[in-house]
Design a protein around this nucleic acid. Sequence first.
DNA 1: AACGCATCCAACCGCCGGCGT
DNA 2: GACGCCGGCGGTTGGATGCGT
Length: 293
Amino acid sequence: MGRAPCCEKTGLKRGPWTQEEDELLVDYIKKNGHGSWRSLPKLAGLLRCGKSCRLRWTNYLRPDIKRGPFSPEEEKLVIQLHAILGNRWAAIAAQMPGRTDNEIKNLWNTHLRKRLLSIGIDPQTHELTTISSPLGGPLKRPPASPSTRHMAQWESARLEAEARLSMEASILLAPSTPLPPNKKTNTDYFLRIWHSEVGNSFRNINLKGEKIACSSPVSQASVSGMTIEMGPKPEPELSSSNPEPESKSIHLYAGFTHSTSSNEVEDSSDTALQLFFDFQGQNDMSFLEAHFD
DNA sequence: AACGCATCCAACCGCCGGCGT
DNA sequence: GACGCCGGCGGTTGGATGCGT
């Protein structure tokens, strides 16, 4: 037996919304909140499926939606977030206030994907597919290591958890939409895991699966006035010896090895690492500043 | 002006996970 | 544990629009 449709298909209007329908939906939600989407159309006097109403509201009518074209900064942010989160448009949208997942998805599929392809970057892996060598032949870039992918997964989960946390905080602060007292989300679990021994183990394991020696040197790089510090997490007394202002520094400790002899970062082709070096301006870092303190 | 093709994007579809019973 | 309901998500579609010939 198949699953019942989300709503009665017969007699319901489909296709583009009229201004009159929009007004009905906005008026109803402003007065009553959306409540149950399933019952909303009938209560609001709309001949639409509840799902259609929810989509129209979340993707178009919500008052906090920033309409208009994406700025170059926003496009860059989408690319950077996509490198971390993949096709998780809702998670990406959570990092970009005023933009919907549908908008970002459309932007990606119509503009950014093609743009990356045109410059030889695989839009799924964010790695160079083929680049020209100085001798004229094509060069193939090695794929990111499993460890870095693992790191990206952890970071992805953490970003999402913190996005949810901030969203919940804003909901709690809004008197009109209080959070039910018994409402519990995955946020606590994500953050707990990240700060637990499991998270610590992950952070302390290098790319070869070995523990990083704490005496390993720390590498620093500056990008547009930002200090990016890479390497094993220093002991508290060591970190205090470098009084870099918190707002101006980023620390990358997770699963990272450093090579002093060649002055090259091991596994430098890794997508996640490349991502951090690709930042061009401090404004672009703003979304990460809170996460990498 | 007419036609064909390409592009854009709002809307739809199907699946999945959370939750209550 | 099984089941159904519901909301959310990502992939896809198709009508509208723009552009070149």
